[in-house]
């Protein structure tokens, strides 16, 4: 599918999606709508994004993005979905571990480093750090002991 087709397909699902052209096609959607969109483009035989090659979080100070880099082994197209989460105190998003199994570990990492909670995750736990630690990849994270500023 070309980028234009993908755009129209996503707009059908999420009408207010914002697109950014870059290296890949970026689609910014609201966190609450991301799950149904991801599920549908995974199951749609025309898109069939079967390979989630990168899942990460980005902290833009006012809001978080959970970024899904998707590609399809069959159709050879790539798409980036950015789910926007505005709640900084208790950020939540639906887990996609049921769609792509790799998400299970990646979501643990995002939870550990950003504090974004994933609903319906099979086993949400701190992966690297202990339970009392803050969320180090947030931009407002401070640590006087372990971070030595140069």
């Amino acid at each position: 599918m070309t980028n234009e087709d993908l755009k129209s397909l996503i707009t059908q699902h999420v009408s207010e999606a914002v697109f950014e052209e870059g290296q890949f096609l970026n689609a910014i959607v609201d966190g609450s709508k991301a799950f149904s969109l991801l599920k549908s483009i995974r199951e749609n035989p025309e898109t069939e994004f079967d390979y989630l090659f990168c899942q990460s979080g980005v902290d833009w100070k006012e809001f978080f993005y959970v970024v899904y880099h998707l590609s399809s082994k069959k159709h050879k197209h790539t798409l980036v979905i950015k789910a926007k989460i505005t709640d900084r105190v208790n950020p939540r998003i639906e887990s996609v571990a049921g769609i792509w199994k790799t998400a299970e570990m990646n979501e643990l990492e995002i939870f550990d480093l950003f504090g974004i909670k994933f609903n319906n995750h099979p086993n949400l736990r701190r992966l690297f750090l202990d339970d009392t630690w803050g969320f180090p990849l947030r931009k407002d994270y401070t640590d006087d002991v372990n971070i030595v500023s140069l």
Binding site: S56, V58, D59, V67, H69, M105, L137
Partner: peptide, 14 residues
């Protein structure tokens, strides 16, 4: 601003 390394070992371990 942000760098994410998608490392092969992490996915393979899963």
């Amino acid at each position: 601003y942000r760098i994410k390394y998608r490392s092969p070992g992490f996915s393979n371990l899963a």
